[in-house]
Amino acid sequence: MKIAFVINQTHKEEAYFTTTSLALKALKRGHEVFYIGLADFYYDPEIVVGAHARQVSPHENIQDESDLLHVMRETEKSLVNLKHLDVLWLRFDAASEMIGRPWAASAGLQFAELAQREGVWVINNPEALTRASNKLYLENFDESIRPKTIVTRNYTDVQNFFDKNDEKIILKPLKGSGGKNVFLINKESAQNLKQTVEAIARDGYIIAQEYLPEASKGDLRFFLLDGQPIEIDGKYAAVRRVQPENEIRSNVHQGATIQVADIDEETLKVVKLVSEQLVKDGMYLVGLDIVGSKIMEINVFSPGALQQASEINGVDFMAAVIQDIEHKIHERKK
């Protein structure tokens, strides 16, 4: 199997990324791996869509994620016709390109759509990713699993929402990732509300959400594969992310710690309410951020923490994902 990962840029990949671990697992299972940056695509009428990719073949010198990245970076790029791939996997962070390369994410999705029309299996579906390019995607799902939310750039709107929600809300960019520019506004910090709104609004629209008291205990990152929970030996591909003291963000690189997630029936009911629509949208691998009985975000571009879920649960969720792709490719080729 030939599987290509579309990333932001080669030099920004890290050994702890979920993408790296998935690529390593594919190599260990005997597959060819390609790395394609968002600036690496190529179009002409003869091959339609290609890419200047770094190709890594299975060999004994690659033992871990650090070895993989070293070999990949030392490999020269070569032009690859994407029609000859089995899988084109979009694993880039669109939000991180907003300032420096605002053209990159949209161009990547357009090239991926061309590849999809040529018969390549593109995951997640680029047409749906275009619609899901910001946090408004969550508003397409059942109201019962969504926190109270407004989207605006108007300070008065935010002030009114703050007053209606017990003077305690969360503010964050409509298009953002990694916990950047996420703020808790309460009675003590209300004097900074106008400045906070203005700061976030410089880069676009603002999301204001009700504050959920359960958030003080962290959140769940819960993975779905083709609409279904990933479960091995009764253990789910999920982690509880617990933020440090005096921190509201549960992102790992913002200092949150990873704990084993206790998955109860309420969580599974919440998950079930979004699974059917995600399958319809072609969202193959998704990370849900869950607080209590509410989904705070649906991560469809490059959800992380799957490797941490594997490590903390002592099971190989990475292998389960690659095996499922193998099965689906086999079915597509029949």
Rank of each mutant, 00 (worst) to 15 (best):
K2Q: 11
A4L: 10
F5M: 09
E14R: 15
A15K: 14
T18K: 00
T20A: 01
L22D: 08
A26V: 05
R29Y: 00
G30W: 02
G30C: 07
H31F: 00
H31Q: 06
I36H: 13
D40A: 12
Y42F: 15
P45Y: 13
E46W: 11
E46C: 05
V48R: 14
V48D: 10
G50F: 11
A53N: 12
R54P: 03
P58K: 05
H59S: 15
Q63S: 04
E65C: 07
E65L: 01
H70R: 15
V71G: 05
R73T: 06
E76C: 03
L79M: 15
L82A: 04
H84R: 15
L88V: 12
L90V: 09
L90A: 02
R91G: 05
D93V: 14
A95P: 02
S96R: 02
P102H: 12
W103R: 05
A112E: 04
A112S: 15
Q116Y: 08
Q116L: 09
V120T: 07
N124Q: 08
N125G: 09
A128C: 02
R131I: 00
N134S: 10
E139A: 04
N140V: 00
D142A: 06
E143G: 03
E143N: 11
R146G: 09
T149G: 07
I150D: 14
V151M: 11
T152R: 13
D157A: 11
D157W: 02
D157K: 09
N160Q: 13
F162M: 09
N165C: 08
K172R: 12
K172V: 01
P173V: 06
K175I: 02
F183P: 00
F183V: 03
N186W: 04
N186L: 08
S189G: 11
N192R: 15
T196E: 10
E198L: 13
I200R: 10
R202C: 10
I206W: 05
I207K: 05
A208H: 10
E210A: 13
P213K: 11
E214H: 13
A215D: 00
S216Q: 15
S216T: 10
K217P: 00
D219Q: 08
D226Y: 08
G234D: 15
V242P: 05
V242D: 10
Q243G: 06
P244M: 09
P244V: 07
N246D: 14
E247P: 02
R249C: 03
G255F: 02
A256R: 04
T257N: 11
V271E: 09
V274G: 06
E276H: 15
Q277N: 11
Q277Y: 05
L278Y: 08
L278Q: 07
V279S: 00
D281A: 06
M283N: 05
V291T: 13
I295P: 02
M296D: 01
S302P: 09
Q307Y: 08
Q307R: 07
A309H: 03
E311A: 09
V315R: 15
A320N: 04
I322H: 04
K328R: 14
E331L: 13
K333V: 12
K334M: 14
